[in-house]
């Protein structure tokens, strides 16, 4: 089950950005879309989120065809590259947003929302920042808010668009393992878009290496290194060979 992507294509004018892409994500699995800029990985993520629509192909989530479903009905939590925090709302209000937007029937009570927000913020280790506004936060804190906000809607899938690119190297490493732990604890599938090989290798169970709108290879870090499917994969992952030897993969 999980998410199945079948034969998805997308072009901007005459420019083909996704060329018959297939991908499957198992429940609880962490998948990375890895590739240089312009390889189509962000477009694929936005199509999965429902923020863009493919010209051909199908998206199936837990057996349900969601190809034409609106973004708001998909219940996929997304962390944007810019984080896209609501600047006029406090951290707590940002986190509560998705729950407050639910129709009255399925909306938790006011106190229910409050408790859930508190749990999430504590889990993301930013419980003490609940009343702050986004402009008063550091980059790392903003990312945690974006993550807590996405998790608040109890998403069926977590989508991460280069969530570390705006942070400096030092904080990045700490946040990576925090993200991985959080995803395991919640137990949902996640898709991470990144151009950083090390990041993909450290976080993901399986990695899809993308180039020019196609998935060159999809497999575990070990598979990619042992048996690269194309010269592109071998070249793109050059330098990562030692990485596995150091045993830093997990």
């Amino acid at each position: 089950m999980g998410l199945e992507i079948e034969n998805v294509s997308k072009s901007y004018g005459s420019n083909l950005v996704l060329d018959a892409v297939d991908l499957d994500v198992q429940p609880g699995e962490f998948v990375a879309l890895l590739g240089p800029s312009g390889s189509g990985k962000t477009t694929l993520l936005r199509i999965i989120a429902g923020l863009q629509f493919a010209e051909g192909g199908r998206l199936v989530m837990e057996g349900e065809d969601i190809t034409g479903l609106e973004a708001r009905l998909r219940r996929f939590g997304m962390v944007f590259q810019s984080y896209a925090l609501f600047e006029h709302m406090s951290v707590a209000d940002n986190t509560a947003f998705g729950l407050k937007m639910r129709p009255r029937g399925s909306r938790p009570s006011r106190s229910g929302i409050g408790e859930r927000v508190k749990t999430l913020l504590d889990m993301a280790e930013i419980g003490h920042l609940a009343e702050r506004y986004p402009s008063q936060l550091s980059g790392g804190q903003r990312q945690r808010v974006a993550l807590a906000r996405a998790l608040a809607i109890e998403p069926r899938l977590l989508l991460l668009d280069e969530p570390f690119s705006a942070l400096d190297t030092k904080i990045r490493k700490g946040l990576r393992s925090a993200l991985r732990d959080l995803q395991r604890k919640v137990g949902i599938s996640a898709i991470l878009v990144t151009h950083d090989q090390e990041e993909a290798f450290e976080i993901a169970d399986r990695i899809a290496v993308m180039s020019e709108g196609r998935i060159e290879q999809f497999g575990t870090a070990e598979e990619l290194l042992r048996t690269p499917a194309s010269p592109f994969v071998a070249e793109f992952l050059e330098g990562m060979a030692n990485y596995e030897n150091q045993g830093a993969g997990i």
Partner: peptide
């Protein structure tokens, strides 16, 4: 349009 898109992925409809 980032914030609008974020709101949509969080389940908000057009008016919201």
């Amino acid at each position: 349009r980032d914030q609008e898109e974020a709101a949509l992925t969080l389940g908000a409809n057009g008016w919201q």
